[in-house]
Each structure stands twice: as C-alpha cells, then as structure tokens.
Amino acid sequence: MSPSARSFLLHLGVIAGLFVLCFTLSDYHQGNLARIMVLATYAIGYNVLFGYTGLLSLGHAMFFAAGMYGLGLAMQYGGMSPVPAFAVGILTAAVLSVVVGVLALRTIGVAFMIVTLMFAQSVFLIILYFGTWTRGDEGFVIPQAARQVLGMDLTDPLIRYLAALLLFSSALLITARMMQVRFGRVLIAVRENEERTQMLGYDVFRHKFLAVLISGSISGAAGAAYGLLFGYVGATFASVQYSIFPLLWVLLGGAGTTIGPLVGAVFMFYLIDYSSGFTNAYMLIAGLALVLLVLFARAGIMGEVRRRWAPWLP
C-alpha cells in the first residue's frame, strides 16, 4: 500500500473510531471527548505552524480567543445565528493572523516567540479594556436557546459530539491533505532548512505567511466552536496559559504528526482528570509526567510510534 493510501485509511479509521465511540462511551466520557476534539482542533491549527513549519508561537491563544469573541459578540450584539456568527469568528481570527503574520514574520526563533507572546498579551488586555462589551475576565454566556443550527440543538450531548467531530475531522483531513501536496512539503522544507528552500527558488515568506493564516484560522475555528458548543466566552481563553496548552499537546502527541494533536490532548486531559481523582496535587503528577515523557519519548507519543514501528505515519 502506498503511504498516502495508508495515511488516508488511518485518518478514516480515526474518524470512524471517534464516530463509533460516541455511541458506546458513557455520558461523561462522551462529553469529555467532545471537548477534547475541539481542543485537538486548536492543537491541529497550532501544529501547522509549529510542527510542520517550525515556527514556535507563544501567542496562539489570541487566535482561539479571536474566533471565540468574533462568534460570541456577533451573536450577543449582532443577533446573528450560529452559522454566520461562526463565519465571523473564523474571519476575525483570519484577519488577526494576517496582521500578526505580516509583522511577526519579520522575526525568527526566540524573537518570534516573544513577538507572538506580546501580541497575545495585548489582545488579552484589549479584551479586558473593552470590558463593557466583552465583560472582561468574567466573560458571558451564550444562551442555550441561541445555540441551535438548522433545527438541531447544539446543547444536546449527541449533536454536540457530532458537531465537534465534524469540526475535528475537517481540520484533520484538510491539514493531512495539505501536507501531501507541494505546499505542505515546502513548509517542511522551510522547517528543515530555510536558506536552502529560499535558494531553491521558493517564496519562503509567502509560505510562512500562509502557514500563519491557516494555523490562525483553524485555531480561531476551534475557539468559535468552543464558544458555540459550550456556551461560554471569556478572556481566560486569551491568557498565556492557553497559548502554552496547544504547544504542550502537540509536543506530547508528537509534533509534525497528523494525529499527534489529538493524542496529546487526550493524554493531557485524562492525565489531569484521572490524577485529580486521588490527589489535589495533580499538577505535580502532570509535571512529572511531562518530564518523564520528554526524557523517554522525546518525539512525543506518535513521534515515537513513527520512529520505532511505523515510519510511514503521516
């Protein structure tokens, strides 16, 4: 079987597996997985820039929050229905990505990290500054009655799960396909050796810029979906912590692998959820797990799988 057929089957298998799970899981785990899929979508967006293009951003929460507030404000003050509001959310994140891309891509390496961090911090403070509309840190609730699409109730656990699955599979398939075509291969070339890619005649800036745009828009879609599916919009999601999370998920799951973001998000969620069951010091356990993982499985979970057993893994 060719690698691309294998990877196609793998992604189809993951999506089918998630679909089946929603009928077999308990209510609790079904709810969790719906949440995780939205967060994994955020991580997929992050992975485009970090895992494939090699640009480490410390400010992705601004894109997540832009999508979330774009949707939330459009629904709250524009009276929009979820579908156009969702589009507004993605558009908001896309516009922000363009601005950030144009400015931040003038820098590389640690300077890029700091510039993205600073932009995200500004977005966080701007949300607080316009508290009259955003309700700042407290945020606001999108009423249950407004969260209906085409007669379907997005607050119903099953429909919510399927909506999250739709979002996740779209992001997964789009990025997986992207990495098979030339555009994606150039991104990887940029990651591996920027100068050489430039010398080969590729427009490196244009590729990096598009990577920021795609990455930011997917992250924004995840943010908008989070607001829509779970009914809450708040500044917390723009804080530094929420910029660190996707980095962690991607590194844990395996940077530059297509399903690594999902694996990392699942792993981190259940690590905290499970360990908080017997100790309040679950952060200690999470910390230890991170250290151990990085000591003994440096490439992340899927990265190790690829290295040891399945070199074809996309």
């Binding site: 606001f140 999108i142 249950q144 607050t155 656990p157 779970f230």
Partner: peptide, 14 residues
C-alpha cells in the same frame, strides 16, 4: 470566582 460561575453555568443548565 465569577468567571468560573459563568463558564460552568451553561454545563449545569444542560
């Protein structure tokens, strides 16, 4: 904390 109340209340309602 209020932001936790806002964040959690939709889940309670659902």
């Amino acid at each position: 904390f209020s932001h936790v109340v806002y964040g959690s209340a939709p889940a309670a309602g659902e």
